[in-house]
């Protein structure tokens, strides 16, 4: 991702979780779904909400609130599933991210993006690629591949049992 494509490379989709705003590169977003029924898979951590049937494909959905250690709330009409394409162990894979609401698509220049803050953020900075000033606030740029990396999930699973 060193050389960004001009057309969609610096476009970001923003979404909200709790009071924070996050951003994802549009190039990784496949589609956005309304909240739908999920099949919960037993013996998996709570943030792995389950799987959905996306046109005859089984796609896992991750509850981003639970994943980032935020309070889990019941779904609202704004609750969405963002289907993103991630690379896990060099394998391209579709994963759904359950978020509070989807905001907008932003254009961000490289200059607008600053390194992730060391403190003052509630979540593991490892998941962040940087942050950008948007209007009055900040958007946290997610490294979505890292968020869904297997090792992390495996680790949590072990501690859970």
């Amino acid at each position: 991702m060193a050389v960004e494509d001009q057309s969609s490379g610096n476009q970001y989709l923003t979404f909200s979780l709790d009071s924070e705003m996050f951003a994802l590169p549009v190039s990784q977003v496949r589609e956005i779904l309304e909240f739908t029924h999920m099949t919960r898979i037993p013996q998996t951590p709570a943030y792995m909400r389950g799987v959905i049937n996306l046109r005859d494909k089984v796609v896992p959905v991750i509850d981003m609130r639970a994943k980032f250690g935020l309070e889990v709330v019941t779904e609202t009409v704004d609750t969405c599933i963002i289907i993103v394409q991630v690379l896990i162990d060099a394998e391209a894979l579709l994963v759904g991210a359950l978020v509070d609401s989807v905001q907008e698509v932003l254009e961000l220049n490289q200059e607008q993006i600053e390194p992730p803050p060391r403190m003052g953020v509630q979540l593991n900075t490892e998941f962040l690629r940087g942050m950008a000033r948007v209007d009055e606030g900040f958007a946290l740029l997610l490294d979505i591949d890292k968020v869904f990396s297997c090792n992390e999930i495996a680790m949590i699973r072990q501690s859970q049992t």
């Binding site: 896992p60 162990d89 297997c150």
Partner: peptide
Amino acid sequence: KPLGPLYKNLRT
């Protein structure tokens, strides 16, 4: 249908 690598540690 495989569940994919996210669930590779799930054995049951």
